[in-house]
């Protein structure tokens, strides 16, 4: 499988005052293959959204690089860069209420990309918008309505149509279903799945609902305080987590199965995610880790490929933890 997107040592800091910076994304490297869905999970404040936005150019990169099909993307996007890259990289946002302009009609919102990037005549844009409204399960005559006339699930469909009308190859979905009800989440997930198959899309699917991410993704990547702690195929990582943080994260996810829940011991751990301003030296998870060792407090573990001695056929797995070095 060829890599569509290659992220190398990507760093994004936000300066918040004299000698103070938020280490939102700290030295992340990740490859996303063609037609692959990579699920990115982690607690709030772990830098998932910042990573997603830095990849599509909505944040300038502090250092490191992102390349798309082997071509290096700019560190800081100018208007020309957006003009050039927006046609093949798009983003679907979390909040379907605040990410649609309330003063534009749905037709204007969805067709804006075509008008700006393809300079098509108005009639052609309208046709295309009508077609996309139907593809995402809405009706063509909805294009003259305004966002407030739609429910959350319908608005998320509008956001999806807006992102996909330019037929991008790569889409960052930043928590596309978190704001929706369970019954509607499945509608949106199935829609993304169908569109992925019919258009050959590659997706970075950011979410905190672990069961849903496992269901959607081919591979899963777990972030903690700005860095990746574990990457692996979705099922392997979910059912056989290696990093202590991944184990706790997956163990904290309550199963919709009362019999299982009654048997399961509590996996709650003390403490909360530390501030990304004063990042502790060594492993970032050390202060909460149940298996912490001396080395964890002063040496940062690198993300390394795990070689399973007894199972040569095991799917590739990368872990950043001193337990495995």
């Amino acid at each position: 499988m060829n890599n569509l997107v290659s992220i190398r040592n990507l760093v994004k800091y936000f300066d918040i005052g004299p000698n103070q910076r938020v280490h939102a994304v700290d030295d992340i490297s990740l490859d996303i293959g063609e037609r692959e869905i990579v699920g990115l999970v982690g607690e709030s404040g772990s830098g998932k959204s910042t990573l997603g936005k830095a990849i599509v150019g909505l944040h300038d990169k502090t250092s490191g690089s992102v390349s798309f099909k082997g071509e290096l993307l700019p560190t800081k996007y100018g208007p020309q860069d957006f003009q050039r890259h927006a046609t093949h990289m798009q983003m679907i946002f979390q909040d379907p209420y605040s990410s649609l302009n309330p003063r534009m009609t749905v037709g204007e919102i969805i067709g804006e990309g075509l008008r700006l990037h393809r300079q098509l005549p108005a009639a052609t844009v309208r046709e295309s918008v009508a077609e996309w409204l139907e593809r995402v399960g809405l009706e063509a005559d909805h294009m003259s309505r305004y966002p407030h006339e739609f429910s959350g699930g319908q608005r998320q469909r509008i956001g999806i149509a807006r992102a996909l009308i330019l037929e991008p190859e790569f889409v960052v979905c930043d928590e596309p279903i978190s704001a929706l009800d369970v019954s509607v989440q499945a509608q949106v997930v199935n829609l993304l799945d169908e569109l992925k198959k019919s258009m050959g899309l590659t997706l970075l699917f950011i979410a905190h609902d672990l069961s849903m991410v496992r269901y959607v993704s081919d591979r899963m990547a777990v972030m903690y305080l700005g860095s990746l702690v574990e990457v692996g195929t979705a099922n392997e990582l979910f059912f056989n987590p290696k990093h202590p943080y991944t184990k706790i994260l997956i163990g904290s996810n309550p199963e919709p199965d009362p019999k299982l829940e009654r048997q399961r011991p509590s996996t709650a751990i003390e403490g909360e995610i530390p501030s990304p301003v004063n990042v502790p030296p060594g492993c970032r998870f050390a202060n909460r880790c149940p298996k912490v060792m001396d080395i964890c407090h002063h040496t940062t573990p690198n993300l390394i490929s795990l070689v399973e001695v007894d199972n040569a056929d095991a799917a590739p797995r990368d872990v950043a933890c001193h337990l495995y070095t």
Binding site: V182, S183, V184, Q185, A186, Q187, V189, N190, S211, M212, R214, Y215, N235, F238, F239, N253, E255, P256, D257
Partner: peptide, 16 residues
Amino acid sequence: AMPTNQPGIDARLTPI
């Protein structure tokens, strides 16, 4: 409409 977390079972979600 919710994914079940059982290994090997990957039934397609049935939305309402």
